[in-house]
Computed example of a mutant assay.
Amino acid sequence: MILPCRKESVDKIAEYAKNEPVVMPTDTLYGLCMSIDGDINKIYKIKGRSIEKKIPVGVANIEMMGKIAEITPEAEKLIRAFMPGPLTLVLRNKGVKWLGDTVAVRIPAHTLTIYLMEKIGPITLTSANISGEKAPSVIEDTMKLDVKYRLDCGRLMGKPSTIIRLVDGVELIREGAIPMASIMRILEE
């Protein structure tokens, strides 16, 4: 079922998203989202994703992030400069049971996704596509996924978030919407 881009749509699916994946907009791409306390294997199955590939986590704010990740001074600088926004930070894991030592976490700049997280807590935030296929910038790109609910908010940016690892130094994992030069400029201040 495709729902309109409204708070009422989030109200309708929030309880469902505690245990089942839904397609939500982010500031960059459409995401496959559900509570991190649900059965995460459902996400892997729907995407056809290798279990070795970790799933990023979305949070509504820095306080929520601090409950699941160790926020270093470097991370705090980048959070204040670029979040909410298209930046994913890999930090030491503090509270996500199904992840190992690290967690990839971000605050997406989309009011409806933040609203969902305010209602149900941290969520999975992986792209809503079959692994290896085109990044989903429009709802039509998500139709191969077997999910009950999708929120259609039109065309999104289409460029993925930049991923920076901040464990034992600074490492660029993927350059996306934010250039590495901008990241380094903030870290050097």
Rank of each mutant, 00 (worst) to 15 (best):
I2Q: 08
I2M: 06
I2P: 00
P4I: 03
E8M: 09
S9A: 07
V10Y: 00
V10K: 00
D11H: 01
I13R: 02
A17Y: 00
E20F: 14
V23H: 07
M24V: 05
M24E: 06
P25Q: 07
P25W: 07
P25M: 11
T26C: 05
T26W: 04
D27Q: 02
D27M: 05
T28F: 08
Y30F: 11
Y30Q: 13
S35W: 10
I36L: 00
I36E: 00
D37I: 02
D37E: 12
D37T: 05
D39H: 03
I40A: 02
I40G: 03
N41R: 13
K42N: 11
I43Y: 09
I43T: 10
G48Y: 07
R49H: 10
R49M: 07
E52I: 10
K53I: 11
P56N: 13
V57I: 04
V57G: 07
G58Y: 12
G58T: 06
V59D: 01
V59T: 03
A60D: 06
A60G: 04
N61S: 09
E63M: 13
M64N: 11
M64W: 05
M65L: 12
K67F: 11
I68A: 10
A69V: 11
I71C: 11
E74H: 14
K77D: 05
M83I: 01
G85C: 03
T88F: 05
L89W: 10
V90Y: 11
V90S: 10
W98H: 07
G100C: 02
G100A: 04
D101T: 06
R106N: 04
A109D: 14
H110G: 06
T111I: 11
L112H: 07
I114V: 06
M117E: 05
K119P: 04
I120E: 00
I123M: 05
T124W: 05
T124C: 01
L125W: 02
L125K: 06
S127I: 03
N129C: 10
N129Y: 10
I130P: 05
S131V: 01
A135F: 14
A135S: 15
S137Q: 15
E140D: 14
D146P: 10
D152C: 06
C153A: 12
G154V: 14
G158K: 03
S161V: 08
T162N: 03
I163P: 00
L166E: 15
D168E: 14
V170D: 15
V170R: 15
V170W: 15
L172K: 09
I178Y: 03
P179F: 01
M180V: 09
A181Q: 14
I186V: 15
